[in-house]
């Protein structure tokens, strides 16, 4: 398993280089001059030309790319054009918010998705199944921004139980209680993904229930709960593990919307603002970080897969 992990990490290098090229090229395809945006409406063409030269944006794209790549290999993601601070510290500023948001969302997805899906499958065809399946369908179809706004309307504006926006760091006043600011955003973000997991757990458990080895388990005289848990659920989990890789990709794009709706100082909102400001180094840096995270998540999914299914051998 260690050899496999090392091999997989090495295999990510070419992928990362290809990804970095694509990121760089696509961002430079976006029309708009960062120097002009930075200097504002009153800037003269001469001033813009000077700044462009200063930032090295007058050089050919491949030169700019190689320069960026060289710095990258030294751990330097460049300097934000807008903030005039290293990109890494811009990302680090948003990391706490986005990290906790992601963590809480994952917890919701697992805590809601897996048990509800399992209950729906064991109560297949009853009203419990119909209600949970219907609710899951609803949660999966509702757009993130709409759900977010309604949760704010009900729990923040109407009932006043939870804050509607913002997120003070847990290291500031309030400490861990500040995590309540992330309760509504994480629920919003979790809803469509938990719904997907509910449907998936239910469907694969119903599939597995028809397997011959489940009949064997029942013929051993095992209690139905043990059959459902040890034999049906355990095998259904294999299909669900694969879905978590995709869920992460969906989370990234939905997080951008959620952070905007709840005005959270996270990485997602940073990306949106940086795109509007044509802050190339920040956009490149964030997307690269997301690519790396995505590859890590998929590696973890593969490792989980081999742990769940002995037929999968890691070579």
């Amino acid at each position: 398993m260690l050899a496999f992990t090392i091999k997989r990490i090495l295999a990510t290098v070419p992928t990362l280089i290809a990804a970095s090229m694509l990121i760089f090229l696509f961002i430079h395809l976006i029309p708009g001059d960062p120097a002009a945006i930075l200097l504002g409406d009153t800037a003269t063409p001469e001033e813009i030309a000077v700044l462009t030269k200063q930032m090295g944006l007058d050089q050919p794209v491949y030169v700019q790319y190689l320069k960026w790549l060289t710095n990258l290999l030294q751990g330097d993601l460049g300097t934000s054009i807008f903030f005039q601070v290293p990109v890494l510290s811009v990302i680090a500023d948003g990391a706490e918010t986005s990290g906790f948001l992601a963590l809480m969302t994952m917890i919701w997805i697992i805590v809601l998705g897996i048990p509800i899906g399992a209950i729906a499958a064991t109560k297949h065809g009853t009203w419990i199944d119909q209600i949970t399946s219907g609710a899951a369908m609803f949660a999966a179809s509702v757009p993130t921004f709409w759900l977010g706004l309604y949760l704010i309307l009900i729990f923040a504006v109407g009932l006043g139980w939870l804050p509607s926006s913002g997120y003070p760091s847990i290291f500031e006043e309030g400490g861990l209680a500040n995590l309540r600011y992330l309760l509504l955003p994480s629920l919003t973000l979790a809803a469509p993904n938990a719904a997907l997991i509910i449907r998936l757990v239910r469907a694969s458990m119903l599939d597995v229930q028809r397997e011959d080895y489940v009949r064997t388990a029942r013929s051993k005289g095992l209690h139905p709960v043990r059959v459902a848990y040890k034999h049906v659920f355990r095998n259904a989990l294999i299909a669900v593990a694969a879905a978590f890789g995709f869920t992460f990709a969906a989370l990234v794009s939905e997080a951008v919307v959620t952070e905007t709706v709840f005005s959270l100082p996270g990485i997602g909102r940073t990306v949106v603002q940086s795109i509007l400001r044509r802050d190339y180094p920040v956009i490149q840096g964030v997307i690269l970080v997301i690519v790396v995270l995505y590859m890590v998540v998929n590696l973890l999914v593969d490792l989980a897969y081999s742990w769940l299914d002995p037929r999968v051998s890691l070579k």
């Binding site: 011959d212 080895y213 064997t216 388990a217 095998n235 769940l308 299914d309």
Partner: peptide, 10 residues
């Protein structure tokens, strides 16, 4: 009848 599928693979 089906020994191939009657044992739990995991």
């Amino acid at each position: 009848q089906e020994p191939m599928t009657s044992l739990n693979p995991v």
